[in-house]
Design a protein around this nucleic acid. Sequence first.
DNA 1: CACAAAAGCGGAGGCGCCTCCGTTTATTAC
DNA 2: GTAATAAACGGAGGCGCCTCCGCTTTTGTG
Lengths: 207, 207
Amino acid sequence: MAVEPSTIAETKTAAEEKPLRVDAQRNRDRLVEAAASVFAERGIDASLEEIARRAGVGIGTLYRHFPTREHLVEVVYRREVEGLCAAAGELAARHPSDVALEEWMRRFVDYIATKRGLATSLRILLTTNSTLFSDTSGRVSQALRQLVEAAVADGTIRGDVDASDVLHALGGIYSAPDTPEWRDRSRRLVKLLMDGLRFGAGKSVKA
Amino acid sequence: MAVEPSTIAETKTAAEEKPLRVDAQRNRDRLVEAAASVFAERGIDASLEEIARRAGVGIGTLYRHFPTREHLVEVVYRREVEGLCAAAGELAARHPSDVALEEWMRRFVDYIATKRGLATSLRILLTTNSTLFSDTSGRVSQALRQLVEAAVADGTIRGDVDASDVLHALGGIYSAPDTPEWRDRSRRLVKLLMDGLRFGAGKSVKA
DNA sequence: CACAAAAGCGGAGGCGCCTCCGTTTATTAC
DNA sequence: GTAATAAACGGAGGCGCCTCCGCTTTTGTG
């Protein structure tokens, strides 16, 4: 899926199959953008007409590009994963490795918050498109591994853990239903986890 | 479907919880009746408004009785199972036991044909209402057992099989997707199965 | 029977889904 | 540049979902 022409998903589609007419590509991008924000704020059952409206295109255009709601959901989902993974590299480049890891986990939590709503819709997708999940979950854990290994390597977190441990530790996030306090609690969990990871590290960033 | 007027599901609801006003009960019955026939001919996604129309009631009435499509589906489904099980007893009383068994299996096939379409909707139901399945499948296998045991007992079918064998043999029906010839093939399967069951029976009904 | 309260009715109305097709815009060829 | 063709646009229209609430019918009580 074109990991990066100019960062993420928007332009990628151009190179992908048929060279789509420029207006078509522009509209498609707008739709994805609009869909991401509308899904985020109204949930997965948001009105497709609102998405079209917000993208400034007709409803017909939306349907031409995305014949079903699920198609649109999938694209948005993939885009989010893409962004999350790209963030790993950027954070690693810009921050001390433990901070990068912490920040990335924070974003992961937000991402899960989105996906939570998508769950039902994804369930449907998974029956049709089974590559989707293995595909993306592989990418996510790879991104996490990169961060964890870097932090272990330079001693900002303890050495006796690996990426799958951390992923497991984050797993607890799923359990909480959609209570309003869910987000806060998850953040606390991330902080707690980071404290644990930093404890007993070879050295700390700012002694 | 209505296996016959005053045996089954229609009237039962009255006694079940609150003694529903007579007009309400009448409308409810009409709705179930209409739903059964509309679902049968248009599939599970049939318009609820058409059901209301066919029942001769307003759409509001439909929604008052059945707040969601799934509620309505469940009632229809249960009613069908009820009919199928009741048929076992009646067939046993009116026909030689092997003929009763054969006829019942034929009806079972038709029932599955209906359920096929319902599958998706039922999947949703099952997450909510998990008694439904165990409940009904128990009933069905009990009905089958009754027929098989009777036929074994009077020697019209071979003695080395039991109800679960037969149910298993019928299981193959599920495998076929929704080809148009599906129904015919299933009938042939039933016939074949019956021949196998009669073969080597202690005696046959009409020597 | 009469009357009030409770229960139920039904359909208008607002919204979303999705298709269809006449119009517009980009692309390609000259 | 212009013309021809293909690609894409967009929104009207038809249908279904579901809620809401003023009206009707039943039921209980005397």
